[in-house]
């Protein structure tokens, strides 16, 4: 009797776990917080300050989604993940979404069963070397010791790049960015390779950033973006359109400063009205209320504001918009229309 009750509970628990993935939106609402996977610490993208408050470019996406869904951008539980643990954490339901400079690739989308919500940063893999090394191109790195973060597309690109150029190297796989930094600064590796944005961010934290340079070669395409589990299309739509709302807001000139004013009454531009819910009910179609996008924008501002505040040219990271400028200014950041 007791045993069967035990087995029954176990079975119920297993099935419950199996079906939990079905309604992420309900789970998030029930929990009252969004569990968002971020990096373990990458200045400008996701970094906890001395009080444990997370801030950064990827963190802003989490906060925008939390604001859209829960009405409060601070109701986020940030789960630091390494390159290795992130997919397991997402697949197992430990986190609801992953915003951790993750490259959108075919196998991750199709084989690992994830759903990329879009691209929030167009990146490419680069190399950083001390100026004292006297290297001006990655093709001169024959025989060099290269530090890489393990569990990323980086190590595959690296293998391909050196193979294609017919030069040898000695890979040193490392789990986190801070360990890689320690080894690179101690001279245990000649160069450090990761996404160019990560290099800029890491370099900014060095004591003397000017002693190091990023080599001109960008050896891969790395479209980074937030992702969710495959199979819950509604949740995927929420994350995708929250990101699109931030991008569209920049395009339409809706900023954190004027979003409240625009949201209070319908204005002249119908697309702004649709976006902010003063006309139509796009939020209702997502299973949210009308003001979802207005809240998402109010937390950290639009895409451009988030970029400039966290990683832009006026920050220590100092990344120019480049490919990540809005399409209206010659970049690749482009959102499907809100209608």
């Amino acid at each position: 009797m007791k045993k069967s009750a035990f087995l029954g509970t176990l079975a119920a628990a297993t099935f419950a776990a199996g079906f939990a993935a079905a309604g992420t939106l309900d789970d998030v609402k029930a929990a009252g917080e969004l569990k968002c996977g971020v990096s373990t610490g990458l200045a400008g993208f996701a970094l906890a300050d001395a009080n444990g408050v997370w801030d950064g470019f990827d963190v802003a996406v989490c906060r925008a989604v939390a604001a859209a869904v829960l009405g409060d951008g601070s109701k986020v539980k940030f789960v630091p993940t390494t390159g290795k643990t992130r997919f397991t954490a997402l697949a197992s339901g430990e986190i609801d979404m992953l915003a951790r400079n993750t490259t959108w690739t075919f196998s991750r989308d199709v084989d690992l069963k994830f759903e990329f919500a879009g691209v929030n940063y167009y990146d490419g893999q680069g190399f950083m070397a001390p100026k004292a090394l006297g290297v001006s191109s990655a093709k001169e790195l024959d025989g060099a010791t290269v530090c890489i973060q393990t569990g990323t597309t980086t190590e595959l690109n690296l293998a391909d790049f050196f193979r294609a150029n017919g030069i040898s190297y000695d890979p040193v796989p490392i789990e986190t960015n801070s360990e890689a930094q320690a080894q690179y600064l101690a001279g245990a590796c000649d160069v450090y390779t990761t996404d160019a944005s990560g290099l800029a961010s890491t370099r900014a934290t060095f004591e003397s950033p000017d002693d190091h340079m990023v080599l001109p070669e960008i050896v891969s395409k790395e479209p980074l973006g937030p992702l969710v589990r495959h199979g819950d299309n509604n949740w995927g739509d929420i994350v995708r359109w929250t990101l699109n709302a931030l991008i569209t807001a920049e395009e339409l000139g809706v900023t954190s400063a004027n979003v409240a004013q625009h949201s209070s009454e319908a204005g002249k531009n119908p697309e702004v009205n649709r976006l902010l819910g003063t006309e139509g009910d796009l939020g209702g179609m997502l299973g949210l209320d009308k003001a979802w996008a207005s809240r998402a924008i109010a937390v950290n501002g639009n895409y451009g504001e988030i970029f400039e505040k966290n990683i832009g040219v006026n920050t220590p990271i100092g990344i120019a918009r480049g490919l990540n400028a809005s399409w209206t200014e010659g970049g690749l950041i482009y959102s499907a229309p809100f209608r």
Binding site: K84, F87, D111, T150, G151, E155, L156
Partner: peptide
Amino acid sequence: TGTLMGITLNQTG
């Protein structure tokens, strides 16, 4: 652990 249960796990899922 680094190869089979590390990178291989990660790249193949």
